[in-house]
Amino acid sequence: MHSLTASDAQIRPARASAGMSAISIRNLSKTYASGFQALKDITLEIRHGEIFALLGPNGAGKTTLINIVCGIVTPSAGSVRVGGHDIAAHYRAARAMIGLVPQELTTDAFETPPATMRLSRGLFGKAGNPAYIEKVLRQLSLWDKRNSRIVTLSGGMKRRLLIAKALAHEPQILFLDEPSAGVDVELRKDMWQLVRSLRASGVTIILTTHYIEEAEEMADRVGVINKGELIVVEDKVELMRKLGRKQLTLELREPLAAIPAALSGRGLALAADGRQLIYSYDTRSEGTGITDLLDAIRNAGVKFKDLQTTQSSLEDIFVGLLRQGS
């Protein structure tokens, strides 16, 4: 037996609400044939109906994790259940629930959008439904292209077509692997809108991204993965509250060459060629000491014309976590 780790600790609350998990990943590891270990003992619960963002730098193991759950990559150790069905023993039931939008733009070339969607729907064991296919294509603004060969579609349209294919069999769980890669801002907004409406209809969504703002915008919960290890899994708001730092910036009237001796030891820093005085503090601590600090600044004879506070974004938190890990 190995010692109890943070990821083991997650198992217990998950068991209590086993019926609530859309996906349950236990002690999952993957070592590729090359000998490279892409995933290390991942344990993770995805809740029904949530949007879960898997964040991590390139090569962290996000795609590997998704591909294992979807049946494309074989795990080296551990187990995965989808809707309570083991992905190996009951692969039909497990896979039928899932729709996958892959990271790479891999589409057929000479087929039309409805034809490739019919293939997707059939593969996932559903009888044809032209009305539904039309609905999805309209939703994704692809209906005008119904008679076009896929090769003639733009990159953004192909990306949307991959989403349409993933939705072709009305999945309960949708994986979006880097949905915004190479997608313009306009389209990204549309996609976020679509994802929200899917969530509203009860679909569980797992997306991977290295665009932090995407996770910040969309996710209910965030998991950070780095070098194959799941570093943290947390409610997004909670994560920002816990790890978030606030920053107080004072715009000085006169630039300072150095922090006055009277203010040393208070964790202050100068920025913008001495025209800004910066104070970082933890939102977790009870007393932030700001009033006290402002008094001290006044007493030291430092005058400021303006002040502002900023809260760290998920990006800052993410960078901080990765730095801690290495």
């Binding site: 979807c70 497990a94 790479e104 593969l123 996932f124």
Partner: peptide
Amino acid sequence: FVGTIYEILSAPV
């Protein structure tokens, strides 16, 4: 070759 095999591998077939 083009990668569309992902769909067949991930399907309940």
